[in-house]
Amino acid sequence: MVLLLAVVLIGCAIAVLGRALVSTDGPTGLERSLASLEQMGTPGANELVAEAEPAFADRVLRPLQERALTIGRRITGADKAERIRHRLELAGNPMDWTVDRVVGMKVIAAVALPVIGLAYTQVIGMSLGTSVLVSGGLLLLGFFGPDLYLYNRAEHRSEEIRRTLADAVDLLTISVEAGLGFDAALQQVARNTEGPLAQEFSRVLREMQLGKGRSDALRALSERSNVDDLKVFVGSMVQADAFGISISQVLRVQTAEIRVKRRQHAEAKAQQVPVKIMIPVVICILPCLFAIVMGPAALRIMSSF
């Protein structure tokens, strides 16, 4: 019964958080049906419209989201909202999140998780002090959990950009040397590659099509990422565009430098492996070896005394 209750409470919390992430700006199915009845002039449509009640999302979830967003704005402040927006840009805007949605989710999770934790700890018979500690930990987890998730997504995205940058710049260099312009070569790279770097190149092209200058679009690309190699590459392209330097020559130099940096980064990661292996070896493997090797001897010594 305790396990079943815990599963039900966790499912309810996940359902509330998931529903809070779903946008409810568009009309619901009932609203569309009633609008169709009004347009067709079906008899009794006005009575159906009058008798129809607001949906559950409009009556409960939307006010809950608005209240959570109001509280979250008071807690975070304007500077925190700007930092969240920057983290969303670094993470690639996962699931089309917005700053308001992240702030509201932080407040809802900070309220829902401690309540569920407190109820569960009281059901299984924990003391009041332990229940308060667990609830406090869940409160911190619910409030800072979205920030940790965005940080993790940003790190993975930056690592993937760093890994694919050299190949993308190689393809860009080949396309420019084959006679394509920089914009056409950038479009070729965005079309024939996958991953976050291809998405960023596509966004640069869309911004340029909307009227933004090439230098401004490239600077915006460097601001949306925290990869140093990409920032250096963008700075070189902006300077080449400003001073009229041959882009193919700059791309060739940048390709060689990026490949050298990628090899150095891989070597640094490889040198960290022995140090990282020490932790699981000391904690998990060596105690088992000691138990296997010294266990029989310890049992014989105990039996002899």
Rank of each mutant, 00 (worst) to 15 (best):
L3H: 06
L4Q: 12
L4G: 08
A6G: 12
G18P: 07
R19A: 15
R19N: 09
S23R: 07
T24I: 07
D25L: 04
R32E: 06
S33I: 08
A35E: 15
A35W: 08
L37T: 06
T42H: 08
P43C: 02
A45L: 02
N46Q: 12
E51D: 13
E51Q: 13
A55I: 04
D58G: 11
L61M: 03
R62S: 05
R62E: 07
T70S: 14
R74H: 07
A78L: 10
K80I: 02
K80N: 12
E82G: 04
R85I: 01
P94S: 08
P94F: 11
D96Q: 14
W97N: 01
R101D: 05
M105R: 06
M105T: 13
K106Y: 05
K106E: 11
A110Q: 01
A112T: 15
G117K: 02
Q122F: 09
Q122C: 05
S127I: 04
L139S: 14
L141G: 13
G145I: 00
L148S: 08
Y149K: 03
L150R: 03
L150H: 11
L150M: 11
N152E: 09
E155W: 15
E155F: 12
S158P: 07
R162F: 01
T164I: 05
V169H: 00
L171W: 00
E177C: 01
G179V: 02
G179D: 08
L180R: 03
G181K: 03
A190Y: 00
T193A: 00
P196S: 06
P196M: 01
E200L: 00
S202R: 07
R203M: 09
V204Y: 04
G213S: 05
S215R: 07
L218H: 03
R219A: 09
R219S: 10
A220G: 15
R224V: 01
R224Q: 07
L230M: 14
F233V: 01
V234P: 04
G235F: 14
M237F: 07
V238E: 11
G244F: 05
I245C: 03
I247R: 02
I247A: 01
L251G: 01
R252K: 13
V253G: 06
T255N: 01
H265D: 12
A266M: 10
Q271I: 08
Q272E: 15
K276T: 10
K276C: 03
M278V: 14
L289D: 10
I292R: 02
M294G: 15
A297L: 15
M302E: 12
S303P: 09
S303I: 12
